[in-house]
């Protein structure tokens, strides 16, 4: 019982972080039909920015906000400079491009920040809450992780659902030509989409790093888990990405808690293969809403 609770709580926290990363991938896929493998090193860069700020003796929160803001800028720059030329071109061009960015950003980071391990601070304790004489396996930082992802998702939901800009972003993602005919500056919306996705990606990078070690390739495995979560959710659906992230977090946590943590990457890939074989459109997407 105790172990089941521990396992599910760990899975919940991890799942939220994967959900955020998956959401970042889905936001970009939906609007540009590109799987942004470079999301991982982009989040790594912004985490290093936070680390540099905190190591300079500036409070954690300023580093945290600076990382998210630099994610916004980095996402916009990457879209404008690198992605714009391949938009609307064969999909292979974009795949090769984001994989290329993945390698190049990692290499540049190793030169600029060094490839040694550095520990990343947390704003809250890493001890579990005590309820009576039982210690619940949920730390202050876990609670913060879950809450911050939920808040970011709520903000995105509100943006898409209730604002004009959000409506224009969704319209551009669904039908670029009709959006242009209605006066939407589609290119601007795509840039904004990449920028917001990079903010969400940066958030997951900060949460993975918290209380742990940071090095240039520390996000590389997360891009795999985030991608699996996004595919679970149908790749097109933000809500699906969140549910996919949570399911994957719980599933992998069970594998790690009951079977062995060395099997986690294998389990993630097995889930991916099974989903692609059985329900390639994801667990939640309904075929009618998909377009090519």
């Amino acid at each position: 019982m105790q172990q089941l609770l521990t396992t599910s709580l760990a899975g919940l926290t991890l799942g939220m972080v994967y959900a955020a990363f998956a959401l970042a991938l889905v936001l970009i896929w939906r609007s540009t039909r590109i799987v942004n493998f470079a999301q991982a090193p982009m989040a790594m860069i912004t985490t290093y920015i936070a680390l540099l700020i905190v190591d300079a003796g500036i409070p954690y929160w300023i580093g945290f906000v600076a990382a998210l803001l630099s994610g916004l800028v980095l996402g916009a720059i990457i879209e404008r400079v690198f992605i714009r030329p391949v938009e609307g071109k064969p999909e292979m061009n974009a795949i090769i491009l984001t994989l290329g960015l993945f390698v190049v950003i990692n290499a540049v980071a190793a030169i600029v920040f060094g490839s040694h391990y550095r520990s990343f601070p947390v704003p809250f304790g890493l001890r579990g809450f005590e309820v009576g004489d039982v210690t619940v396996a949920l730390t202050g930082f876990d609670v913060f992780s879950i809450c911050s992802v939920v808040v970011v998702m709520m903000l995105l939901l509100a943006l898409f659902r209730y604002t004009d800009v959000g409506l224009k972003m969704r319209a551009s993602a669904f039908n670029q030509e009709v959006s242009r005919m209605l006066g939407v500056k589609v290119t601007g919306m795509l840039t904004l989409g990449w920028a917001l996705a990079a903010v969400v990606g940066s958030l997951s990078g900060l949460l993975i790093a918290g209380g742990d070690l940071v090095y240039p390739s520390y996000m590389d495995s997360v891009v795999v888990y985030g991608f699996v979560a996004a595919v679970l959710g149908g790749l097109d659906s933000p809500v699906g990405a969140v549910i996919g992230g949570l399911l994957l977090g719980l599933g992998l946590s069970v594998v790690s808690g009951y079977v062995g943590s060395e099997l986690v990457p294998l389990a993630a890939l097995s889930i991916l293969i099974v989903v692609l074989l059985v329900r390639p459109s994801g667990l939640f997407s309904h075929a009618t809403a998909r377009r090519v």
Binding site: D164, L167, K168, R170, A171, S179, L182, G183, V184
Partner: peptide, 11 residues
Amino acid sequence: EENLRLGALGR
């Protein structure tokens, strides 16, 4: 309604 709102944004 979202289609209609979108139509109004360019006026």
